[in-house]
Design a protein around this nucleic acid. Structure first.
Length: 431
RNA sequence: UCCUCGGUAGCUCAAUCGGUAGAGCGGCCGGCUGUUAACCGGUUGGUUGUUGGUUCGAGUCCAGCCCGAGGAGCCA
């Protein structure tokens, strides 16, 4: 029996007999000549069955095999320009493990509802396969960069005791007779862990019970949240631009094939390197005004505003110093203008919108207590958080990067829902 | 939650003024030794989302409900 190899490695076996174990992705029937497109999880490859090269039984199996049947194929690896990927397998053995009947996702067009109901099967399709592999690389790049830059992974809990950031956008559950909520951010816990470890990050799922119904929202999504002690707004922006540039460049290097499958114009991504342009909220308002979008001071930007702002630049842009009223209670006040917060969002280019939100956190106990009151937050539930300002408070900053929004941008997709294996969107929790 | 659009064959869609429900793809049968969404011939395929109403007659008109999509708000 020829050696079992993975499709991603076939180039190393040119001229040799190998065995591929996988599934039939597609087939083109030319009579005595069958072109079989195989996939095995690591890639896609064309196999060719000539009637004369196989036993009658085996050729009949190659002629009868249906889409997504599980198959074992043996043959000689040959370089051939006509084959997608440059290599093909000249079959001398072919075996069906299970013959699939009526696979629902055909190689033609389908609607999004149909595909999402069959997400467990749709993941086998080439584009979905490519997206998931980009996602894995983005996550790997995130962890590698943070681990290599002095950040310690210290994860935050998912079950939390109170609506710390206020709002009614939390999923409520029950914790042995007590109300509990699914985490919508590890932020506050990170502020505790940096006082123990200096620089930390948490990385996990977060949940928003918002009835959001747009191409940039998921109910359950993944977020990485780095936090730094003895850091200010400037440090935060410097880290963010290094971090994001690394993620993009590493994906470009390691996932060329996948980005090609996704037909991504990578020239736009190649330009992503520090420094990123920085504009203040007030400057952003002025840019919007010049484009006929008058926005009253103190309002947050909507999706169309973000698109206008980002379209002025080739790289992601920082918008910093938002009015305190449109940011979370824990943002530090700008010493030059207390109406402003030392906050910063990073907007991705090409209309992909906000991928990072963050900034400098309040170090002052007094200001924090005042903000908690203004926001009508339950002070008892935040006592532990106030402790962080009582015992060795320092200037500190951090941010949260949305994994799926980042993958949407890097892959050049129209909608966020394809960037997570099993999306939770408004009205969908199946499969 | 609000606004807009939609639901017809397994899939993607068409159906004129209210008058016999149709095509491509898929499936099945046959042909073809270099296909790239292969191609060619044949064939199969329907409770028109649902409930009620108007009408001689409803896929088509009206009302309610269900489901979905696009967008808004909110956010990463």
């Amino acid at each position: 029996m020829a050696e079992h190899v993975y499709i991603c490695d076939v180039a190393k076996h040119e001229g040799k007999d190998v065995t591929i174990k996988g599934w039939l992705y597609n087939k083109r029937d030319k009579g005595r000549l069958q072109f079989l497109i195989l996939r095995d999880g690591t890639g896609f490859m064309q196999a060719v069955a000539f009637k004369g090269d196989l036993s009658e039984e085996e050729f009949e199996a190659a002629r009868r095999v249906t889409q997504e049947s599980s198959v074992i194929a043996r043959g000689t690896v040959r370089a051939d320009k006509r084959a997608p990927g440059g290599y093909e397998l000249s079959l001398n053995h072919f075996e069906i493990v299970q013959l699939t009947q009526d696979y629902p996702i055909t190689p033609k067009e389908h609607g999004i509802d149909f595909l999402m109901d069959r997400r467990h099967l749709w993941l086998r399709s080439q584009k979905q396969w490519a997206i998931m592999r980009v996602r894995a690389t983005v996550i790997r790049a995130i962890r590698d960069w943070l681990d290599d830059h002095g950040f310690l992974l210290v994860d935050a809990p998912i079950l939390t005791p109170a609506a710390c950031e206020g709002t009614t956008t939390l999923f409520e559950t029950e914790y042995f007779g007590q109300k509990a909520y699914l985490s919508q951010s590890g932020q506050l816990y990170n502020e505790a862990t940096i006082m123990a470890f200096g620089r930390t990050y948490c990385f996990g799922p977060t949940f928003r019970a918002e009835k959001s119904k747009t191409r940039r929202h998921l109910i359950e999504f993944w977020m990485v949240e780095p936090e730094m002690a003895y850091a200010d707004l400037e440090d935060c922006m410097r880290i963010e631009e290094e971090f994001v540039s690394y993620i993009v460049q590493r994906t470009l290097t390691e996932r060329q094939q996948e980005l090609e499958i996704l037909e991504r114009d990578t020239s736009k991504l190649e330009q992503i390197s520090p420094p990123f342009p920085r504009i203040t909220y007030n400057e952003a308002l002025e840019i919007l005004r010049q484009h006929g979008e008058e926005l009253p001071w103190g309002e947050d930007f909507g999706a169309p505003h973000e698109t206008i702002l980002a379209s002025q630049f080739e790289k992601p842009i920082f918008v910093h110093r938002y009015p305190a009223q449109c940011k979370a209670f824990y943002m530090e006040a700008d010493p030059e203008d207390p109406r402003l917060s030392l906050s910063v969002d990073l907007l991705a280019p090409e209309g992909y919108g906000e991928i990072i939100g963050g900034g400098q956190r309040t170090a002052s106990l007094e200001l924090l207590e005042q903000r908690i009151q203004e926001h009508n937050l339950p002070r008892e539930a935040l006592e532990w958080y106030l402790d962080l300002r009582r015992y060795g408070s320092v200037p500190h900053a951090g941010f949260g990067l949305g994994i799926e929004r980042t993958v949407t941008w890097i892959c050049g997709l129209h909608h966020i829902r394809q960037t997570i294996p099993f999306p939770r969107t408004l009205g969908r929790i199946y499969p």
